[in-house]
Amino acid sequence: MKISFKINKEERLVDVDGNTPLLWVIRDILHLKGTKFGCGKAACGACTIHVDGKAVRSCSMPIKMVAEKKITTIEGLSDGKLLHPVQEAWKKEVVPQCGYCQPGFIMATAAMLDKIPNPTDEDIDQNIINVCRCGTYYRMRKAIHLAASLMDKDEQ
């Protein structure tokens, strides 16, 4: 099955079984290795990307569902040379430990801030439900608040 879509602003066409998980296409066909495989059951969030601006767990999204849609992965989150404010905040707060879960968290956070620009701790607890085995949640919380304030400044 031929499926075309935009990924990180580039038009791509793949010819695969329509049920192939989007994550496999991203990693194994398009060789974008920033998006991670954790559980394959939509349980951990390591594979979170954006489809038309919304957070999606790509291990549980068949490729046929993204025909003609816009996908953004961690590689395409920043615009040009500048880091995305969430990445900037992550760097400032030195969030990652092993780093494996982090692209998924960053993508989930960027999607949340798009809808909730100034999240409370409760918003963060409710909306960011990925899993980090290194337990970096505490630093993430700080980074999410920092990212929100950086984005606020960008807008002023």
Binding site: N19, P21, G40, K41, A42, T48, K54, A55, V56, R57, C59, S60, M61, P62, M65, A108, A111, M112, K115, I116, D123, Q126, N127, I128, I129
Partner: peptide, 18 residues
């Protein structure tokens, strides 16, 4: 919720892999 909706994980058909 705003940051994750049902569609974050559930699509319009059963997923045979996950």
């Amino acid at each position: 919720l705003a940051g994750y909706t049902c569609e974050t994980c559930h699509s319009t058909e059963n997923n045979i892999f996950s």
